[in-house]
């Protein structure tokens, strides 16, 4: 399990997130919520060791991340990033990059790696275009290829930074279903989302960041009742029971 203990992290000596304590338990979907600039992506990068913590420590199964080699980190946590360069390569080759942490010199992928990559593509629905150039795919198809690469990394923790941005509603739901399925397999899934309602409906735990500080970390119901979302996002929040379960929605004015 990945744990953050009093973590402060940022850029150029200026902390963006301060003194955060947070666990990402196995088998649960944790959603990070917060307005733009509240430090969600910074926190994820700190948890992945991409940004060294200025203070505090990031623990992987109790070991400080500073003691781990990049390859060890990559075998423990995968990252579906928000922004990226898309090279002009075959989709299957792209997904195979997820096996890089397991490859030794001369870096030739084994039959098993291909099988894992194809299984990951199957899981994300991207197998039909395994031979296509990634650049020729639509935004949603590309996202499913990147998600397959993340899954091919086969890690106990999976971070997804705004995985539903720019996707149509069908694909958003598919991403959320994939996240739930991964959690049911025992993985810790961490999502950065902007959709408060989707987060409350789909998460096991919700962490709310406000101006770089963790203002709440609890179950969706407890977070809803705490009123922290209303304060943080300056919106009204409502919930209603429907035949499909509890649904949350927000209103423009905070109550």
């Amino acid at each position: 399990m990945i744990q953050l203990r009093n973590v402060s992290a940022g850029y150029g000596g200026a902390p963006v997130v301060r003194n955060v304590n947070l666990d990402f338990p196995a088998g649960q979907v944790t959603v990070l919520l917060g307005p733009n600039g509240s430090g969600k992506s910074t926190l994820v990068k700190a948890a992945l060791g991409l940004l060294p913590a200025m203070e505090g420590e990031v623990l992987y199964d109790g070991r400080n991340i500073r003691e781990l080699k990049p390859r060890e980190i990559a075998r423990n946590a995968a990252w579906l990033t928000q922004s990226r360069d898309t090279p002009s390569i075959q989709a299957l080759k792209m997904v195979l990059h997820g096996r890089f942490p397991y490859s030794g010199y001369p870096r030739r992928y084994a039959r098993e790696d291909y099988a894992i990559a194809r299984a990951a593509m199957e899981a994300t629905g991207s197998l039909p275009y395994e031979n296509e150039n990634v650049r020729t795919l639509s935004g949603g198809q590309r996202q499913s290829v990147y998600l397959a690469m993340t899954l091919a990394q086969d890690t106990p923790t999976v971070f997804m930074d705004e995985p539903t941005t720019y996707l149509d509603i069908r694909r958003q739901l598919e991403i959320m279903n994939t996240a739930r399925k991964l959690a049911s397999q025992g993985k810790a899934v961490v999502l950065v989302l902007h959709d408060i309602a989707l987060a409350l409906e789909r998460a096991d735990r919700v962490a709310v960041l406000r101006e770089g500080e963790l203002s709440c970390w609890d179950t969706p119901e407890a977070v809803f009742r705490s009123g922290v979302l209303q304060k943080t996002f300056r919106v009204g929040m409502e919930r209603t029971d429907t035949p499909h379960g509890v649904r949350y929605y927000y209103t423009e004015e905070a109550e």
Binding site: K45, L48, P70, R75, W79, T81, P87, I89, F100
Partner: peptide
């Protein structure tokens, strides 16, 4: 010999690092 490393690097430096490079 370093072609695989370049492949991973071409994804962007942070993503490459998250893949263990």
């Amino acid at each position: 010999l370093l072609s695989r490393e370049m492949d991973v690097l071409s994804l962007g430096e942070e993503l490459a690092q998250s893949l263990g490079l």
